[in-house]
Design a protein around this nucleic acid. Structure first.
Lengths: 125, 125
DNA sequence: CCAATTTATATGACGCGTCATTGAATGACA
DNA sequence: TGTCATTCAATGACGCGTCATATAAATTGG
């Protein structure tokens, strides 16, 4: 019933879960308390900061994160309301949006990224 | 600012996230549709099934999963209401509870575990 | 050029997890 | 023994993610 391979799979899975929760939790709490944004918000900022091109991005971003389309839409909405990001409708295809960091967003991302990388290093060792 | 080591950390982290979400999502949907329980519920069943001893377990279980005490309490509550688990207050320390699978719980666990292991195998390859 | 279909994003209802707190039992110790 | 601190579990308020759907724009086929 429970083969040794099964046990090993379960072990591996629990280890991934533990790492994931520990790391995500640590980052989330740190960003929340120091910058008032959650991990999810940071991850979108991080993705937008990474893509320097001016393509219609909302969609492409979705391909680079395990987030749902719905989740993304709401995170972006929060970031917009917080003044960290701006949404511009795309001329070529008016269904699409492309995103840009505001100055405040860029500054916050710069600071938060340091925290983020440090905690990754600490937790993924 | 973004050292190669930083990039590597971020890559590693995204890979963990992707694996985690893909796997958890797959298992969750499968268990939900076939057995009407979520991944979290299954994980508690699995832990209880594993520990054959009759110790006061609620607390110990908490040490074996990244779940919050609060989360555990609610999951156990759902499992109890679903008739899959029973809570007995502990004689020695009446603050503690210990948990036991009901027959239905044991049966469901047996069936769901097969699904669970198969999906782990599929996703953690 | 007009349906029918498909694609990009937004939104409302809902469930679950988290935080902070509560209640209850136990322990510590003067 | 009485008080104060600690520990275990449950709960209510709240926020976020998910699913199903809505809206709007673009594409496709006749």
């Amino acid at each position: 019933m429970a083969t040794p391979q099964d046990r090993q799979l379960v072990e591996q899975w629990r280890s991934i879960q533990t790492t994931y929760f520990r790391t995500a939790g640590a980052i989330d709490r740190a960003l929340e308390s120091r910058f008032n944004i959650g991990l999810t918000e940071f991850e979108i900022l991080d993705l937008v900061a990474e893509s320097a091109d001016a393509a219609c991005r909302m969609k492409q971003l979705g391909e680079r994160t395990p987030m749902t389309q719905s989740a993304m839409s709401k995170v972006v909405d929060r970031l917009d309301k917080a003044g960290l990001i701006s949404r511009h409708s795309c001329e070529d295809d008016r269904r699409s949006l492309f995103l840009e960091l505001t100055d405040a967003g860029r500054a916050l991302h710069r600071a938060a990224a340091i925290e983020h990388r440090a905690l990754l290093k600490e937790n993924l060792a």
